[in-house]
Amino acid sequence: MVFTIIAALLILAGLVFFFGAAVGLLRFPDFYARMHAAGKGDTLSSLLVIAGFAVYQIGGVHDLSHDWPLLLVVLKLLAIVVFIYLTSPTSTSALADAGWEDGIDPIIEPGRENHLEDDLRPPQP
C-alpha cells in the first residue's frame, strides 16, 4: 500500500511536469525558451513517471524467491531511466546547438545583450 501511494505520487508529479512542458512548448516566446521547457520538463517528467512504475513493481514483491521476475522488470525500468537521463538532455543540447549555429537569435532583455559574446557564434557564411 505504501509503495502504491509513493508510486501514485511520483506519477502525478511526473504528469504535472509533463503539463508544464506542454504549456511551455506552446506558450514560450522563442526557440530557446521552448527548447528549455520541452527538454527539461520532458526529461524530468519521464524519469518521475518511470520511477513511479518501478516503485509500484517493487510493491508487488512479497516473496523474493517467487517474485524475482518483478525485480527484473524493475531493473529494466531503471535501465530506461538511465538511458533517458543520458540521451534526452543530449538531444536537447544538440538541437539548441543546431539552432544557434543556424543563426536563431534568442529574445533578450534590453541592456543585457553583452552576455552573448560574438565569439560564441561561428562566423556566418
Binding site: F83, L86, T87, T90, S93, A94
Partner: peptide, 10 residues
C-alpha cells in the same frame, strides 16, 4: 563534446 561523449557511451 556533449554529443560525442554520450554517443560513445550509447
Amino acid at each position: 563534446i556533449i554529443v560525442g561523449i554520450t554517443c560513445r557511451i550509447a
